[in-house]
Design a protein around this nucleic acid. Structure first.
Lengths: 379, 379
DNA sequence: GGTCTATAGTTTATAATATGAACTATGTTG
DNA sequence: CAACATAGTTCATATTATAAACTATAGACC
């Protein structure tokens, strides 16, 4: 069994990359003796491994690293159709993946997911290790226990104990999470911003998702609704504010989401496909330009609100390359920058990234990996 | 010397109110034996005291409470002129207070503050205890060490080590904090929302301040600029957006702050005094109504953004009663509610409170009390 | 090549801090 | 007044850290 001390070392190595025993001791504020003994246990259990010595003056230091194959995880994304199921190692690398239809019917959904999980587990030859847990990302609200989906419009679920079902059928501990939250938690554990205590992730798809890491932890809010950028009141001129499915008018997602852009294009008699619309805009088509500019600028305004209120070090924006490289991305960046206080670090704060569907499944897998690395008392 | 265990007990009692040893043991997940021994130390040092036994079935339990007079603190507010200096006990009760002119000149400022502190310390007969620390709230940016004021427009300070100066002259540990942050930290430690892990405080004065407690901790952000509601981009219609001192246009504080309201009144040929303006609006004076409605609605829109992004359980809004009871407060509340997702808990989320200048000084005192209660490794 | 020095990591005795289980204390209940 | 219930203490012990001395392994320098 691992103690708090073991988990401290695991999480430090996972956050800060390979480090020697001495570096760990000073970073964690513990004695060399304690680290030495804790590391011995973790090496014996083959959770850590020693890397090639680093030579300086004095005895070379031996960097310690978390062994990627020490544990395996299943990540499920119901963010879109098809559903995606991945098998990752402890570094977040995908070793196998499957796509399957996303069933709204609960029984069908659970059965097909369990079949996929069984198949992936079989593919992992037991000599290499075994699967330690399952994570799932879905577009909806999840209860505090991270087991029950309280509401998911896309699947028509209400108060569905999907976590309990999966964990019962697979015999594996299971964690459920909102899609944006899973995405940023994966980014925090496995991604380039690993270890940053304050950053935000936004993704622009048919809807708009947003999540924030603050003080090193996920910002959930009181009712679990933090980061609801999607319904930020952006269009305040009520003459132009469109009704939103949430019941209000002028929400961000009524202008800046892919669905909203498609709708606007249809009303203007333009093609609703994003790539085609972007091509028209690139060719200076005035109405295409107007739609995409308005969408991007609205997104930028909401991003400025986010930056002013939450003050992240980085904002990762995941979107379609066609939008990123055209007027949408340009307007987003420009509008954001023109509405935030100029801070020393505000340059290069926004990082565009391609919209990768597997990111959600990887984030989901990281939910289970997190338990392995941070322990039951978690971080 | 107090250990981590002692501080755990102190912070639990401070957060959750008086509790018996048994209750502490189960809340903190420790054995009765450990609690018993730790409490003995704290009783001997007269930091805790036993209250009247509570009778149930079985041996009566003895609630333990933090002794208010176990420690005393000085709180300084430079939030406005005059500066306010208070002497509080460990419960945040003000036992003595002074007002003095707020000097922008550093030497004069420090000298007059130190004189005031010395006077308050003398007034506290040493039999009752002694002052353990000093806290200061000021309207500006403070470095991460909580000693140096990086920038304060109202006083014209840049990179002023006010904390170092005060602590050197008084011989007391000193903490500096932004005014809004001090306010919410005081609320968290001493106020009605004590113990709530997710709430926000907004105050409307000549400027607008905002701070947020998230996951039980102050949301500082990457550069310490979180909660900068004041420069939220609210007026997006550039034809009507006024220039702001920050260099952008249409910031919240250009329409919703007392200064902005006064400016708008002057431009309309109306009295700039808030009380008089509110009286005109109450009498249905159309221009007064328009100014105050616009200001309140803008404030409400910014509050809606805050609620959507951060999802607090409560938003405490501190403002002049004349504004609260008139169209400003009404528009604020109405506009906020019409722009947030209806959540189960969204009713009664906004709590108006009178603008009390002493609140800032109390919050400042709580910065030092926090150190006493949470220990050097703080929370 | 040998010695000095610097740094990494281990060993071991010990200190600090928790626990479990038995015990005492002090009430209510019937 | 006995039986019971719950609060709190005691004490032997386990866990988990530390300090300090020790070993290990390199580069540097003469």
């Amino acid at each position: 069994m691992l103690s708090t001390g073991h988990y401290l070392i695991l999480s430090s190595l996972s956050r800060n990359g390979p480090e020697s025993r001495s570096e760990l001791a000073s970073r964690l504020g513990m004695s060399k003796a304690a680290i030495s003994s804790l590391v011995r246990d973790l090496l014996k259990q083959e959770i850590l491994c020693e890397q090639a010595p680093v030579h300086g003056s004095g005895r070379p230091s031996v960097p310690l690293a978390v062994r990627a194959e020490a544990a395996w995880f299943i990540g499920i994304s119901l963010q879109n159709d098809p559903a995606i199921v991945v098998l990752t190692d402890l570094h977040g690398t995908v070793h196998d993946r499957m796509e399957l239809p996303r069933h709204a019917d609960l029984e069908t959904c659970v059965t097909s997911l369990c079949d996929a999980i069984a198949h992936l587990r079989k593919g992992l030859r037991s000599a290499r290790g075994h699967v330690s847990g399952v994570g799932m990302a879905l577009p909806g609200f999840v209860a505090n226990d991270r087991q029950t989906c309280l509401a998911c419009a896309a699947l028509g679920w209400r108060d569905v104990d999907i976590g309990g079902l999966l964990s019962k059928r697979t015999g594996l501990p299971t964690w459920i999470e909102n899609d944006a939250n899973a995405l940023i938690l994966g980014e925090q554990l496995f991604g380039a911003l690993r270890g940053s205590p304050d950053f935000s992730v936004i993704f622009i798809s048919n809807g708009i998702g947003c999540a924030n890491i603050v003080n090193g932890r996920l910002l959930r809010g009181y009712a679990g609704g933090a980061g609801e950028m999607s319904h930020a009141p952006i269009v305040t001129d009520m003459a132009h504010a469109l009704p939103c499915r949430c019941g209000n008018r002028g929400c961000l997602e009524t202008v800046a989401s892919l669905l909203a852009i498609g709708n606007a294009a249809r009303r203007a008699g333009l093609p609703t496909d994003i790539a085609e619309l972007a091509r028209l805009a690139a060719g200076a088509h005035p109405e295409a330009l107007s739609i995409l500019h308005h969408a991007g600028a609205s997104m930028g305004l909401a991003t400025a609100h986010l930056i002013q209120l939450i003050d992240p070090s980085h904002v990762v924006v995941m979107l379609d390359p066609n939008l990123r490289d055209g007027i949408y991305g340009h307007a987003l960046q420009r509008e954001t920058e023109s509405h935030i206080l100029r801070r020393p670090a505000s340059r290069g704060m926004i990082h565009f990234r391609d919209f990768e569907p597997d990111s959600f499944a990887c984030g989901a897998a990281s939910l289970a990996a997190r338990y392995f690395i941070f322990g039951p008392d978690g971080v």
